[in-house]
Design a protein around this nucleic acid. Sequence first.
DNA 1: CAGTGGTCTAGACCACTCG
DNA 2: GAGTGGTCTAGACCACTGA
Lengths: 233, 233
Amino acid sequence: MTELDTNSWQGIKSEVMRRISDRRWQPGDLIPGEVELAEEFGCARATVNRALRELADSGLLDRKRKAGTRVTLNPVRKATVEIPVIRKDVETRGKIYSFDVLDRKDLAPSAVLRQQYGLPASAPLMGLWTLHRADGEPFAYEERWINLLVVPKIIEADLETLSANEWLVRNMPLSRGEFTFSAGNATAAESRLLNCPEDAALFIVNRSTWVVDDAITAVRLVYAPGFSMKTVV
Amino acid sequence: MTELDTNSWQGIKSEVMRRISDRRWQPGDLIPGEVELAEEFGCARATVNRALRELADSGLLDRKRKAGTRVTLNPVRKATVEIPVIRKDVETRGKIYSFDVLDRKDLAPSAVLRQQYGLPASAPLMGLWTLHRADGEPFAYEERWINLLVVPKIIEADLETLSANEWLVRNMPLSRGEFTFSAGNATAAESRLLNCPEDAALFIVNRSTWVVDDAITAVRLVYAPGFSMKTVV
DNA sequence: CAGTGGTCTAGACCACTCG
DNA sequence: GAGTGGTCTAGACCACTGA
């Protein structure tokens, strides 16, 4: 049997999911309270709580004190996209990773750039242009700005050996990030770098990361044609 | 103060994150066990457990019985993308949603289609071609296949009033889903429908959903130029 | 086989918010 | 004000797995 007992939180979670997909508990319905369910399932309230909390986290239930727990009316699918370091991404595809740093500049950012990425007015920046390769073929082209106020040590790092991407993940393990996924036509420069026709449709990721309120880095990643990002709910 | 006490699970979570970003606990390091931390923070082990479990879920810690808890060596960013019903998506952008069903066919699927979407050999399908609009302008073009074996009731639904998208979310609240995000050049047909130049770069989402092991629906969504998907970590 | 995390319990108090 | 979920505790047993 693949059945779980209803006195484990996972078992209760499945049972509740079953009742929802059964439509015994329909969207919008109030379901029994934790104490009542604990009695029914013959377990402690904490166990029921764990199960219901997880379902609420994944957007299937709405819980409010005093109001009780309801089946969500318009469930919002929450897909978790795993965003590994680019090297891992390439290696997962069974290819050999390499990269070239095309250019690197340490400079004060232009006003435009500062505004675009929400960088402090006086921040010294490092600009990095990198081409990531899979089995030698262009995989993604990266433009990156790094705030040297927050990460001064990166100046001395050997970014030809360990990519900035990876250096930052290792040295700044904690950060808030904002990702934007979009599509764009290859510019002339991008088509040369990525070895694809001009105007080819490219998958683009923009990413900004902060530690507390300090902008660390802003990246624009342009993937070679054929790239796709997969995820499971 | 924004500080939380270290005898609440959230407080402990922040304190652990602080120690990681401090580099007091570096990637790969073994951190103290739950009992030890519970003593240090003056709380119950369950409280420490809750904090550490959440950090492990978000990929920051690696936990193994007997081996203990370590700071993850190569953290994988896990971004959660919220995928609302298209109507919501449009409305969130402050626009008025509408849609047109361009075509609809109830038929047996071609062998190609079956294989592509992992559909059962004998499944009767409904094919739906829909144009979603925001303030009347094309927003996204949808090709959808629905497995009528699993969802026979949808035949009688009025899909001109409530989109299939929304009907399914309401009537099949629980499903596994697989999403693929990519970019593609507009075909001639797509450029007409989405009112954009041929070869324009378009953001494409492919989605397949199952209930248990039964394929419910397969969708290809092509968004008009300028679309982007945002998420926060 | 021993130590760690994983889970469960019974009980308690608190915080929010609906009526 | 009262009822619900949110959290914490102290203790217990279990399950996995590294030494």
